[in-house]
Design a protein around this nucleic acid. Structure first.
Length: 635
RNA sequence: GCCGGCGUAGCUCAACGGUAGAGCAUCCGCCUUGUAAGCGGGGGGUUGGGGGUUCGAAUCCCUCCGCCGGCACCA
């Protein structure tokens, strides 16, 4: 019996060894830290005998592959705890997920936060018993008998869905067992530091027509320190919540009477307009022309475009005399109308029509979430009308425009998902081949990381999704580029080619921010409210130490304003420490303190957000420096 | 839309069947101050809307709306 190790060594055994035996042969510490074993690229339990000639790697607790196993172990321990405490509760599924694990239970009574504490305590008991996880390969009949005896109807359903050629396995810990593919770690004592986080509803098999189960979310880490770090990250995310910061910084608000639509306050609207003005300049540079299309459009146009058929439940509609109208949920058909107003020449292509398009969609009430998911939003939308041959070039141009914009907003790390042809689609394979190839070519040239999202393209064409990573590592899909050869057809868009014949243009739907609302939400969270100077609604506050400096403070403020800065004076009779505190809390990037001394010397004390020292500067120098720093990145 | 939780002053929260209270903010005074909370005083709530139970409801029940956490959805 020969076992091949990653470093090329070969271990000899006189019987098929288990992963545990292999680990023990290598070193005592490895045996202690081993969680599972990778056998020819597949993760196995340590107790399973390994076949001759297998390539084997021991996975230790701290290895990334171990994390999902530990969490899956924790899910089983939680399920046992729940069934011990709440008899009659049925188990369903309980996988490891990105940041932890969950288990879905079928039980009539809802779980409460107090229940979570009880379950956690019970889990600790089960962990203390350190029961080994035992894998049992059983026949279907055996498995059916055992779960039927327990009344586990969901498990029976899962059992029925396991393909005939796959073995059925049960994992046992003491008397408790679960239908499970595995693998698992050595025992319940090795699940590490865990915590239950929340309870939520989830449909059985993700299907809204099936029963709603109760999902308990938890997380687990190899040690306490990592768990604490994770919990700290959660707190950090909460601290950055744009809904809270939006109120504290007086950017926007929501209220019942307009659920899903933001009220933009003066400061928030400055931020919006600053972003819009920047983007408008970038679009102009990139050869776009801006348009504006109607909010209310006759239903018949939506019928022709195909949207009425597919998305009418998501559209707001109204009647006007005997006409049925819809509030636009998107801008594309409107842009095609502009394209169609006259005969177009191939010389006009690519024609890039951009619109800061205000759209409304009837989002399900449960989907609404601050600025991140709203019913009224403004897209930074554009449609590029071009020939099939131009797709690649235009995609390349778009990628570099988008990267430029993301970088300017402080996002460096961007990933692309490439969504190719879905099973149900319009258009011939030849057209899809051409469109996908063009996109691939452009994406490769862009140098961005690309991940294939197979079969997830739109029915009308392949698409790219641009995902950016924020300051605390969260992914946000913002930009998109979609190739569309269906809408030009449906709305009969055409141009005259060099051959004098009519041709069908391709439409590229594209957005960089996605929506202003959502992007602003992301920006706020990315910067934790500390917006870069060029975006800050109030860029500087001039605060006096005593009233004696009031007139000088006014002079400083107006000098800043003349230099194009958004500046305010704070002349109140509060102590300077109180004023500093106020403006720090409001996330003003620069505070200029002036007192008698500064007035006499015509200087300012400049203090920056997040920096506790200050710097004495001559007034003119301070103004010049801040004006330079406050310029937009493209200026 | 579905499951669960929540909704009290601008904000954060208390009162949990017996006439609604605190801190911060706001307003008015005093203070003129040197880098994250100076002092005093005043005003502010038909407890999300509607209905019910009760001698009595912020508190219990029903219903609608909204928000929060998920699920489903996201052209």
């Amino acid at each position: 019996m020969r076992i091949l190790l990653p470093d090329g060594r070969v271990l000899e055994f006189d019987h098929p060894p288990t992963g545990a035996e292999v680990a023990a042969r290598i070193s005592r510490s490895l045996a202690r830290e081993a969680v599972v074993v990778e056998v020819d690229g597949e993760l196995w339990d340590l107790a399973r005998p390994i076949p001759d000639g297998a390539r084997v790697r021991i996975i230790r607790r701290q290895d990334p592959e171990a994390l999902a196993v530990l969490r899956h172990d924790a899910a089983h321990v939680m399920a046992e705890a729940v069934q011990a405490l709440y008899p009659g509760t049925q188990v369903t599924i309980g996988p490891a997920i990105e940041d932890g694990f969950y288990y879905d239970f079928a039980r009539d009574e809802p779980f409460t936060p107090e229940d979570l504490a009880r379950i956690e305590a019970k889990m600790a008991e089960i962990a203390a018993e350190d029961k080994p996880f035992v894998r049992e390969e059983v026949s279907r009949e055996e498995a059916r008998r055992r779960f039927a005896a327990l009344g586990e109807t969901y498990k029976l359903e899962i059992l029925d869905s396991i393909p005939e050629d796959e073995p059925v396995t049960i994992y046992r810990q003491g008397d408790w067992f679960d239908l499970c593919r595995g693998p698992h770690g050595p025992s319940t004592g090795k699940i590490g530091a865990f915590k239950l986080l929340k309870v939520a509803g989830a449909y059985w098999r993700g299907d809204p027509r099936r029963p709603m189960l109760q999902r308990i979310y938890g997380t687990a880490f190899p040690d306490r320190r990592q768990l604490d770090a994770y919990l700290k990250r959660l707190e950090e995310a909460e601290r950055r919540d744009h809904r809270r910061l939006g109120r504290e910084m007086e950017l926007f608000h929501f209220q019942e009477e307009a659920a899903g639509s933001a009220f933009w306050h003066p400061k928030g609207w400055i931020l919006w307009r600053e972003i819009e003005a920047y983007l408008r300049r970038r679009l102009e540079e990139a050869g776009y022309v801006e348009v504006r299309t109607p909010q209310l459009i006759d239903r018949r146009l939506w019928e022709r475009s195909g949207h009425w058929d597919k998305f009418r439940e998501h559209m707001f509609t109204l009647e006007d005399e005997d006409r049925a109208l819809a509030i636009k949920p998107m801008n594309c058909p409107g842009h095609v109308q502009i394209f169609n107003t006259r005969l177009r020449s191939y010389r006009e292509l690519p024609l890039r029509l951009a619109e800061f398009g205000s759209c409304h969609r009837k989002e399900p009430s449960g989907a609404l979430h601050g600025l991140m998911r709203v019913r009224a939003f403004t897209q930074d939308d554009a449609h590029i009308f071009c020939t099939p041959e131009q797709i690649s070039e235009e995609t390349g141009r778009f990628c570099s425009l988008l990267m430029r914009v993301y970088r300017d907003f402080g996002f460096e790390e961007v990933r692309i998902n490439f969504a190719d042809r879905p099973a149900v689609r319009a258009g011939t394979d030849a057209v899809w081949d051409q469109a996908e190839a063009a996109l691939w070519q452009a994406v490769r040239a862009s140098g961005l990381a690309v991940q294939l999202n197979p079969g997830e393209g739109a029915f009308y064409g392949p698409k790219l999704e641009f995902v950016l990573k924020d300051a605390i590592g969260r992914d946000w899909q913002c930009g998109t580029l979609q190739v569309d050869f269906v809408l030009p057809e449906r709305l009969d868009a055409s141009y005259i080619g060099p051959d004098g014949e009519k041709h069908r243009p391709v439409m590229l739907h594209r957005a960089i921010l996605g929506s202003f609302e959502r992007f602003i939400g992301i920006l706020i969270e990315h910067y934790a409210g500390r917006l870069p100077l060029w975006l800050a609604p109030v860029q500087a506050v001039v605060a006096t130490v005593t009233n004696a400096a009031d007139s000088y403070a006014r002079e400083v403020t107006s000098a800043l304003k003349r230099a194009g800065l958004r500046a305010e004076s704070d002349l109140g009779s509060d102590k300077i420490s109180y004023k500093v505190r106020q403006h720090v809390m409001r996330k003003v990037p620069v505070i200029l303190v002036v007192g008698k001394r500064e007035m006499q010397e015509r200087t300012v004390m400049l203090r920056r957000l997040g920096v506790n020292q200050q710097e004495a500067l001559a007034l003119d120098a301070a103004v010049a420096r801040l004006a330079a720093e406050a310029r937009a990145p493209d200026a």
